[in-house]
Design a protein around this nucleic acid. Structure first.
Lengths: 120, 120
DNA sequence: CACTTGATTCGACGTACGTCAACATAGACA
DNA sequence: TGTCTATGTTGACGTACGTCGAATCAAGTG
């Protein structure tokens, strides 16, 4: 498989959820919604799990591929659930294993929220 | 003051702290360091405070400008301290008031971490 | 100096979170 | 059917977190 980017690059617009942090003050609801995503990445173990999925070849990884994070297996499952509930990961069972992959939209939204704010 | 961008635009490289989430798995230390920043934005009140500072004219705001977030003033101070400790804000006292401004480097680092990961 | 306003620190409270061991569930295979 | 492996769920425990009131500090004003 070529490592070229022949797939539809997603537009860097971030209004999937919220405007850039510099545009205006977030409302209470916007902040509530956005905070869930940031909080999901606000734990070292979840961050490592997320980067393990994101950096795995094919863009997806089964739990068995990424469970070596230094915590027990139930804890891994717990954190993956959190990431899924935050909309950052999606899971799918295929036979024996459960595969996780990153949700590009959420990732792009968070990125736009920050990068467009950095140009102040 | 002109609102043109005549100031040194910071390079969108994000190795200020960590590689993009897709490049490789984060080490425990990298995850620990990065999680602090994400956790800082993982609270609705802090998110609103941060966006209030970021969207304020001149790129800075005194505490009195942004204290209307629905929590007591000590709580506001507590959250601003958290954001400062995470490297996302810097503060400076000028006379009676304390002014907060966003730390562009940290913001850019987080943004790069995510946007460069979204191009998988 | 005392007094007022802005901001941080302190001490306490309740809740949420991360973690684990034990148990439960799902699929593969004999 | 039963057993084995891979994940998810439950219940419990300790710690960290968000919140507040009260006390404290900082700077301006009379």
């Amino acid at each position: 498989m070529p490592r070229t980017r022949d797939l539809p690059l997603l537009k860097p617009e971030g209004d999937w959820c919220c405007p850039p942090l510099t545009e205006r003050r977030l409302t209470a609801e916007e902040a509530e919604r956005t905070a869930v995503m940031f909080k999901a990445l606000g734990d070292p173990v979840r961050l490592r799990l997320f980067s393990a999925v994101a950096s795995h070849q094919g863009g997806e990884a089964c739990v068995c591929d990424i469970s070596d994070v230094g915590v027990s297996q139930p804890t891994v499952s717990h954190h993956l659930k959190k990431l899924r509930e935050a909309g950052l990961l999606s899971s799918e069972r295929r036979g024996t294993w459960v595969y996780y992959r990153v949700e590009p939209a959420a990732l792009a939204a968070m990125g736009a929220l920050l990068t467009q704010a950095a140009a102040t």
